[in-house]
Simulated scan of single mutants.
Amino acid sequence: MTRPTPLAAPLAAHVVAIVGAGLVGSGWALVFARAGVRVQVYDPVAEVRARILPWARESAAALAEAGLIEDIEAVIGRLHVFDTLAEALDGATYVQESVFERVEVKTDICRAIDALMAPDTIVGSSSSGIPASRFTEGCVHRGRFLIAHPVNPPHLAPVVELVPAPWTDADALEGARELMQAAGQVPVTLTREIDGFILNRLQGALLNEAWALYDEGYASLADIDATISHGLGLRWAFMGPFETIDLNAPGGIVDYAARLGGMYHAMAQSRTPRAWPQETIRRAGEERRAALPEAELAARRAWRDKALTGLAAFKKASGLAP
């Protein structure tokens, strides 16, 4: 095993290993290759490994067309796919784990990484809501493990949540933050663990209300979606909820809270948290499949990524990008 580059070294001197190369892992590979880093990718499934480079080339071409990268061949040339975990980890300063979202699966892969990694390597998990303490406690190098949760797809949505386990080394958390910033991502650092982290707790609050409104028959899925895509989402594309309300009252955030805080509190009290009703989920599935047949899901994801690429280009041109 080659010793990894010190964390303080220039970005181009680092090696990043990607473990798990599905939708999220492939996006991560492109994030670091685009930033000038050698990327070593491993997935246990041969078919997945075979798809990585063709997908990356197609995605890099879309980024180049939008003016977000300049040299496609240089980006693709930094991607290296390996058949074994040991080869992918060789010399890695940072490892991004993106395997299936199950505690037992993540426990197994983290222990395998732990057995092969250098002591100073940092390992970030793409876990969407499971804290690292639930699958890294038994690792010898557990102080080097943390959560690095992206938005999907990570090469188009730059925010990444960094969540330490109780035993994560302070320099590992800081090293991950510095690496993400250098790679063009927007790291959000949590002070401690919480299920769902920040992003999915915020998304969950919105989803819970959306399901309740749909279940109670107030509006269709399409109309509920429209309130976000053609309303709240327009502002949220470049500012968060606190800045939004700060600008929505003459006296700023304190004035907004004085005017509307009571209304929001009353709405929250009117809701009793409950599981999403299975019958409502079934109806929602029928409504969505009537609007978008299952066979067209992949094409719609490609449409989404193209739209996100255009939005990223706009934000860069407007000085709104990180």
Rank of each mutant, 00 (worst) to 15 (best):
E209N: 02
R192E: 15
F145K: 00
E178V: 14
R192Q: 15
L206M: 12
T191C: 10
F145A: 10
V163L: 02
P153F: 04
L199W: 04
D169N: 11
R144I: 04
A212Q: 14
I147W: 08
T191K: 15
M180F: 14
I147C: 08
I194N: 12
V151W: 15
V151Q: 12
L190S: 09
V163H: 04
A212P: 03
R177C: 13
Q203H: 07
G204W: 00
H155N: 12
Y214V: 05
I194T: 15
L146R: 04
W167P: 06
L202H: 04
Y214I: 13
L207G: 03
P164C: 12
T191S: 15
G175C: 02
F145E: 04
H149K: 04
E161K: 10
R142M: 05
E193P: 12
L206W: 03
E137F: 13
P187N: 05
N208K: 05
A148R: 01
H141F: 14
L156F: 10
L202D: 01
H155A: 08
V151G: 13
A212V: 02
C139I: 08
V160H: 09
A205Q: 00
E174H: 13
P164Y: 05
W211C: 01
G184E: 02
Q181D: 02
G138M: 05
I147K: 11
Q203L: 14
V140R: 15
R144G: 00
V188C: 14
L202C: 01
P150K: 00
I147S: 09
Q185D: 06
E193T: 13
C139R: 08
T189K: 12
E137Y: 08
M180C: 14
A165D: 07
P150R: 00
G196F: 07
P153T: 07
A183T: 07
L207K: 01
A165V: 07
G138E: 11
E174V: 06
E178A: 15
P154F: 02
P154E: 02
N208S: 10
E137R: 15
T191M: 14
W167F: 07
E178P: 00
L199S: 12
P154C: 07
L162F: 10
G184Q: 05
L146S: 09
I198D: 04
I147V: 15
Q203P: 02
F197W: 06
N200H: 09
A212W: 03
V159S: 13
P150Y: 05
V163T: 06
G184S: 06
V163Q: 06
P150E: 03
H149I: 12
E193N: 11
L190I: 05
A183M: 03
P154S: 06
Y214R: 03
L173E: 05
A210N: 02
F197H: 12
P187T: 06
M180N: 09
L202V: 11
R201D: 06
Q203M: 01
R192F: 12
P166M: 07
A148M: 08
E193I: 13
N208D: 10
A182P: 00
G204C: 03
W167C: 04
E174A: 15
T168C: 10
L202S: 03
L207T: 05
F197V: 04
